[in-house]
Simulated scan of single mutants.
Amino acid sequence: MGYPKDLLSSRSIIEHGKYALIAPEGLVNNVIPGFENCTISILASPKLGASFVDYMVTMHKGGRNAAGFGGQENIETFVYVLEGKIKASTDQQEFTLEESGYLYCPPGTKMYLENVADEDARLFLYKQKYRPLEGKKPWVYSSHANHIEYRIYDNMHNVHIKDLLPTDLDFDMNFHILSFDPAACHPFIETHVQEHGAYLLSGEGMYNLDNKWVPVKKGDYIFMGPYVHQAAYAVGRESLTYVYSKDCNRDAEL
């Protein structure tokens, strides 16, 4: 980065256990064993108050994780390709993923990642503990978000959503893409038990986080904890679109 060109400042906001806005210019690199020729930043983790871990991964030419990611009996993983072209595989299956491509691996299944192009590949990577349900078991699932049709969100024709994973009870989480046309917004300020980790794919907007309106834009990361107020307005000339995780399909535990 070199010497700063102005006074040090940041748009990032951290409220541990509640929410966080992390601007890309403030990210630092983390060394994660198993990842070779990669630049990685840990975005959210239990240290922030999240029950999951989100990463931003840049795989340089020849970058890979030959040792595998996840694979423990209680850990599920997910990768979404933001840019570039990668090979994503398990011990039994192999997938070629380009922009908007993704792969989910259930507990006990290792995910292997490799950049197969000369250019960098950028990945949004996730892991969390799976909550088992008697008689249910998730499976390896892969597709491309660009191949999935949007559906209207909550009866509003200027807001659209995609489900990236099956909605079966076998899965205890899902990933979605939510897109707001310019000037569109949520129908109300949400307050719910689910938590989210969201990466902004395009646009600009104002996001309500714990009843504080915060400006956000493409490249930002947002963590939203349980019961934190949340809602968005899209501003500008481009749709405000983000990919995000959500825990679902399980009862609250005592």
Rank of each mutant, 00 (worst) to 15 (best):
L125Y: 11
R122Q: 06
S100V: 12
T77P: 03
R151I: 10
I152C: 10
D54Y: 08
L254Y: 09
H192W: 01
T241Y: 09
P182C: 01
P46L: 10
P138R: 08
P106Q: 12
G101P: 13
N74M: 02
V116R: 12
H157Y: 07
A50C: 02
N211V: 02
G71R: 03
K110F: 00
I86V: 14
K129N: 14
E119H: 14
F175D: 04
L21N: 00
I86L: 11
K129C: 15
Y80E: 04
D154M: 04
L133V: 02
E98G: 12
I75R: 06
I14L: 05
H16K: 15
L43T: 08
T90A: 11
D163R: 04
D220Y: 00
L8P: 06
N249A: 00
A184G: 02
A231V: 02
N155L: 12
G236N: 01
L82W: 06
I152P: 06
L82V: 13
L27H: 14
L97W: 02
T167E: 04
T96W: 05
V193P: 09
Q92C: 12
S51P: 11
Y130S: 04
K110G: 01
D168W: 11
R122F: 06
V57K: 07
I177L: 05
Y126N: 11
P33T: 14
R122V: 05
Y55Q: 04
Y112V: 02
E190H: 06
L178C: 09
D168R: 08
A66Q: 02
S202G: 13
I148A: 09
S143W: 15
V57M: 08
L165G: 03
V116C: 12
S45N: 11
